[in-house]
Amino acid sequence: MKKAILFAITLLTVIATNAQRFHVNLLGGVSNYAGELEDKSFTLQRAKPAVALGLSYELTNKLFLRGQFTYTNLGADDKNSKIYSHIIRNLNFKTILQEVNLVAEYDILDNYTHKLVPYVFAGVGVYRFSPYTFDTLGRKAFLRGLRTEGQGLPNYPDRQVYRRTHINIPVGGGVKLALSDNIKVAAEFSLRNLFTDYLDDVSTNYPDLDLLGSRSAMLSYRGDELKPPIPFPGEGALRGNPDQNDAYYFLMFRISYRLPFGNSSQNKTSGKYYKNCPPVKL
Rank of each mutant, 00 (worst) to 15 (best):
S41V: 15
K82G: 10
R66Q: 11
G75C: 11
F42L: 15
P49A: 12
K48H: 13
K82C: 02
I88S: 05
L44Q: 08
G54T: 04
Q45E: 14
S85G: 06
S41L: 14
S56M: 06
S56W: 01
T60E: 09
A50Q: 05
E58F: 09
T60P: 05
I88W: 02
K48M: 13
E38D: 11
K82F: 08
L55G: 03
A47E: 01
L63Y: 07
K40C: 03
V51Q: 04
A76E: 06
A47G: 09
L37Y: 02
L74C: 03
D77S: 11
I87C: 00
S81I: 12
K62F: 02
A52Q: 07
Y84N: 10
E36A: 11
K79V: 10
T72D: 00
L53N: 05
S85R: 10
I88C: 02
H86V: 01
Y71R: 14
S85P: 09
N90G: 05
D78Q: 02
G54S: 04
N73I: 10
Y57D: 05
N90I: 10
I87T: 11
K82V: 11
Y57M: 06
S56Y: 00
Y84I: 14
I88L: 01
R89A: 00
A76Y: 00
A52M: 07
A34W: 05
G54V: 03
L59A: 15
H86G: 03
G67K: 00
L44N: 07
P49L: 12
L74T: 08
G35Q: 10
S41I: 13
L53T: 14
S81T: 12
S56P: 05
E38Y: 08
I87W: 03
K48I: 05
E38R: 15
A34S: 14
Y84L: 14
T43N: 09
T60N: 08
L74K: 04
T70K: 06
F42H: 05
L59Q: 10
R46K: 13
N73T: 14
K62S: 12
I83T: 15
Y57E: 04
A52H: 03
A76T: 04
D77T: 10
D39L: 08
Q68K: 11
K40H: 09
E58I: 12
E58Y: 04
E58Q: 15
R66L: 07
S85C: 07
G67N: 04
L55A: 08
T43E: 10
D77E: 09
I87V: 13
L59P: 05
P49R: 12
R66V: 10
K40R: 14
A76L: 06
L37S: 07
L65P: 01
L63F: 14
S85D: 13
G35V: 12
N90K: 06
G75M: 09
